[in-house]
Design a binder for these strands. Structure first.
Lengths: 234, 234
DNA sequence: CCAAAAGTGTTCTGGCTACACCCATGG
DNA sequence: CCATGGGTGTAGCCAGAACACTTTTGG
C-alpha cells in the first residue's frame, strides 16, 4: 500500500489549478478532396478582421463535454454533411501567439472526402474547394498545418488504402493512378503503378468496363469491402 | 476586398467564447532511457487517491503563457535536470473522462535520455526507472500513451539517428545493437546489423578500442557531430 | 586452452525503376 | 485512319534475410 499521507483527491487537485483553465482547445480539419486531377482542400474565408481576405481551415473550439475526436467529426459533419468519414489526428499546434483572440491550442485532423457526395452545402464563395498546389497564404498558422497534413497523407497512402475515400465506388486504374499523382505531385509509371497496386491486393476486379470514354475503355475496380469499413482506423 | 459587414475583431470573438475556457491543457512526457540491456521509462507514483499505488508518466498543466513544446521541456528539465534533450510530440489524447479531476486534454511527448547523465535527482522510490516490458498498469490512460510512444520510437530509430541520446558518446557496435534490440524487443543478426548501420553512414570510427572487457575488445564509434546537433529536429 | 565476443562475405529473394509495343474504342 | 489511353514483361539494381568460421583478448 502506498503511504497516503500526502495524497489528494481529484476534486482537491482541480481546485488548486483553476488558474490554468485559461487555454482554449480547438480542432482544425484539413479536409482533402479530389476533382479534375487535382488535390483540393476545403477552406473558409476567415471572419476575423486580423485576417480579412484570407482563407482558413475549418475549425472550432472543443466543447467541455466533447471528446477531441468527436469534435473533429462534428466540424466535418456541419460543413460537409457527411457521416462516417475518414479522419485522423495529425499534430497539435500550441505556440502562445498562434491565435490573435488569445491562447488556443489546436489539434489538426485530416480528412478525405469524395467531393461528388456533398455538393449540397458548398455553394457560397466563402466556403469552397481550393487546389492545394495553389494555396499560398492562409490565416493563423494554417499553412503549416496544411503542409504537415499533406506530408502525413503522403505517408499514409503508401501503406493504407485510405485513398478510397476520395473516389467513387467504381474506378479504373487510370483514375486511381491520377489520384496518387495528384497527392504526390509527381507522375508515376503506368506499368509499375499497376504492379504495385496489384501486389497490395486492395482491389477487386468488377468485370465491368468504363463507359462514356472516347477511347478503349478500362476495367473497373473497387476496394475490397473489408478495407473500407472502419474508416476511423484504416 | 472582403465585405466587412459581419467581420468581428479577435477581442470580440474571444468574449463570446468564454464559456469554452473550461478545458485544461497538459503535457505528458514519456521519458525513455536505456540501462542493462533494457529499455526503461521514467515513472512517478501517482499522488491522486483514485490511482493510489499506481505509477504515471511525468506530466503537468501547460501555463497560459507557455508554448506547448516549451512545457514539455520544462517538465523534463524539472525532473531530470537535463537541458538540450531530445523531445518529440507523439499524439494528443482528449477523451472527456480520461482524467478524474476534470476535463484535461493532454499532448504526449517522448524523450530519450542517457540515464547515466543524471542519476542526481532520482533517488526516491516514487520516481524511478521501470523496465518498459514489465510495465502493465498505469494511472489515467498512460499505458496507452506509453504504447503509442513506443511504436513511434520504433519507427524513428530506423530512419533517424535519435538513438544516440540513449548512449554515452563512445560505444561499440555491440552496445549499439543491444539498444536497438531492447527497443525493438527482438534479436538482430550481427552481420546484417553492421551492414545496415554502415550504410546509414551515421558513425565515425574513433580508432579506439573497448577497455575493461574480458574478451576481444571491439572498436569504438561515435555519432557524427552534425547529427547530434539540433536534437529537436533530428 | 577455454570462454566470450569481434569481425567478416555470399547467396537468395523481393521490390523498385526504367523502358516500348500492340490493342480496343470512338469519332 | 487517327487519337487516346488500355494493357502487358523484362532486365538491372539494391536492400533485407539467412547463415559459419576465424581471430583476439582475458583469465
Amino acid at each position: 500500500m502506498a503511504k497516503s499521507s500526502n495524497l489528494k483527491t481529484a476534486a482537491l487537485e482541480k481546485s488548486s489549478h483553476l488558474e490554468y483553465f485559461k487555454i482554449a482547445v480547438s480542432v482544425d480539419c484539413v479536409i482533402f478532396g479530389y476533382e479534375e486531377k487535382e488535390l483540393k482542400v476545403l477552406l473558409i474565408k476567415s471572419d476575423l478582421k486580423e485576417f480579412a481576405g484570407l482563407y482558413s481551415l475549418l475549425g472550432d473550439l472543443v466543447r467541455p463535454d466533447e471528446d477531441l475526436d468527436k469534435a473533429s467529426y462534428r466540424i466535418l459533419k456541419e460543413r460537409t454533411d457527411l457521416d462516417d468519414v475518414f479522419l485522423q489526428q495529425v499534430h497539435t499546434f500550441g505556440t502562445v501567439n498562434r491565435h490573435p483572440s488569445g491562447r488556443v491550442v489546436s489539434t489538426a485532423y485530416y480528412s478525405l472526402v469524395n467531393i461528388n457526395n456533398h455538393k449540397l452545402k458548398i455553394n457560397n464563395n466563402d466556403l469552397r474547394w481550393h487546389t492545394v498546389k495553389n494555396v499560398h497564404k492562409l490565416a493563423f498558422d494554417h499553412k503549416e498545418i496544411l503542409a504537415t497534413s499533406l506530408l502525413h497523407l503522403r505517408g499514409q497512402i503508401e501503406e493504407h488504402p485510405v485513398i478510397h475515400n476520395l473516389l467513387d465506388e467504381k474506378f479504373s486504374l487510370r483514375e486511381l493512378q491520377e489520384v496518387y499523382e495528384a497527392i504526390l505531385n509527381t507522375p508515376l509509371d503506368r506499368r509499375n503503378f499497376r504492379k504495385k497496386i496489384t501486389l497490395k491486393n486492395w482491389l477487386v476486379d468488377l468485370n465491368e468496363m468504363e463507359d462514356n470514354v472516347s477511347h478503349r475503355p478500362g476495367k473497373l475496380y473497387k476496394f475490397k469491402p473489408k478495407l473500407i469499413k472502419n474508416n476511423k482506423l484504416t
